[in-house]
Amino acid sequence: MNGIGSISDIALKLNAWNLIMIGLIILCACLLAVASQRLLPWLAGKLPGRYRYQVLALVPLMRLLIIAAGIVLIIPHIIEPTFENLMALLAAFGVALGFALKDYISSLVAGVVTLYEMPYRPGDWIEIEGAYGEVKSIGMRAVTIVTPDDTAVIIPHLKLWDRPISNANGGSHNLMCVADLYLHPRHDANLAREALLDVALTSPFLRIERPVNVVVSEKPWATHYRIKAYPIDPGQQFNFITDLTIRGKATLSDLGFELANAVPAYA
């Protein structure tokens, strides 16, 4: 540690008064962080839909600002904030924590990275290692998602480094839904496709300003129709798919189409 003082060289200022001040700063920061974590989602819930996600996205940012402010306020109570002292402190903590809490620190660092890379934000619908759900909160170490079955899944941020993260709406309201229908192969595919387009265009869940499409592909045992459309509210995606499926089946049946019911022989 040539040029910078070692941890033993740092003039520590840890007297009783400073310890009390540090405790108070930590307490205030915790209170502020908890308050922002509760108040902002509450406020977002009260706001019109178009502002909801912007306000939710402020939660991790507010926490970062509070933590940064807390650190800045605490350091002068521990050491004389000279360049040498700061570097020595950081080096010492880095070595000690790096070995003991590698994954934890990695998650914390990844948590900071999420703030500017924004692979997920509160309100996004994401999938990480098979867990799909809505991002409810982003902590410093982990992200909490709630699955459609109302199960909370806590995923450490360090997955960010080496695992694919699928984000269905990427901070916007635009989340594509796909409803699958299978018809007996012998039919007029154009007529079926037009009927299914109208099924989508008449759904009250539909965000009609976004494109609607029906993709057709042939399977050995059926013709596969995929209705692709966007709901007004991403939170209604499963109700939207249900609506498309129920009305799609009813409409096709009314028009005399035969739904595929054969199980593939190789399945």
Partner: peptide, 8 residues
């Protein structure tokens, strides 16, 4: 009518 058969 905003119905699957109501637009034609």
């Amino acid at each position: 009518l905003r119905h699957a058969r109501g637009l034609s």
